[in-house]
């Protein structure tokens, strides 16, 4: 295997600032321990070089984009883990409480289903949707700006107007 050029501190800083900016502007927060977070950012850069996409630094990528789609950062499991554990699986993203030092983060169990189950779910998702009125997820509405999203739970913060989860109501 060819050894690519080493990842520089400048590159890590640049990507860190970019991810932090995107996170904050959508109501998400990075882990406040900058050294820890930059370690994860280095992992993201390394995975981008290896596989061509930023797969989760704390999960083993298969190296095929289709197989790894659910763990490309931000992964499919970030928001449910934020809601339940105040951090995503690798703890790159944390709740506002963790960022402000009011909550702590422990080891987070792996929520990603095993490979056989993921393949079954992918095949299922390729099928035509059901009749109108049959949705696989509840739909939540932000009471302030009307933003709608279909997911297990509303986001911790509205990505549009930044109000908290408690301002969301079940729409459908």
């Amino acid at each position: 295997m060819n050894e690519p050029a080493p990842i520089t501190a400048e590159e890590i800083d640049r990507v860190y600032c970019e991810i932090d900016h995107d996170a904050e502007s959508a109501g998400y927060h990075l882990h406040p321990d900058e050294a820890f977070t930059k370690g994860l950012v280095r992992g993201l850069i390394e995975n981008e070089r290896r596989y061509g996409y930023r797969s989760c630094p704390c999960r083993l990528a298969m190296g095929s984009k289709e197989a790894d789609l659910d763990i490309i950062c931000p992964c499919d499991y970030r928001d449910p883990d934020l809601a339940e554990y105040n951090a995503c699986y690798c703890a790159l993203y944390v709740s506002r409480g963790v960022k402000q030092g009011e909550q702590t983060v422990g080891a987070i169990p792996e929520r990603r289903p095993p490979r056989a189950e993921r393949e079954r779910a992918r095949a299922e998702a390729r099928k035509a949707p059901g009749a109108i009125g049959e949705f696989p997820f509840p739909i939540w509405r932000c009471g302030v700006c009307g933003y709608l999203c279909a997911r297990g739970e509303p986001p911790l913060q509205c990505p549009i107007c930044k109000v908290g989860k408690e301002r969301f109501g079940r729409f459908i």
Partner: peptide, 9 residues
């Protein structure tokens, strides 16, 4: 471990 993972480190 994974070389990229903070918890592994």
């Amino acid at each position: 471990a994974l070389s990229t993972c903070g918890w592994c480190a």
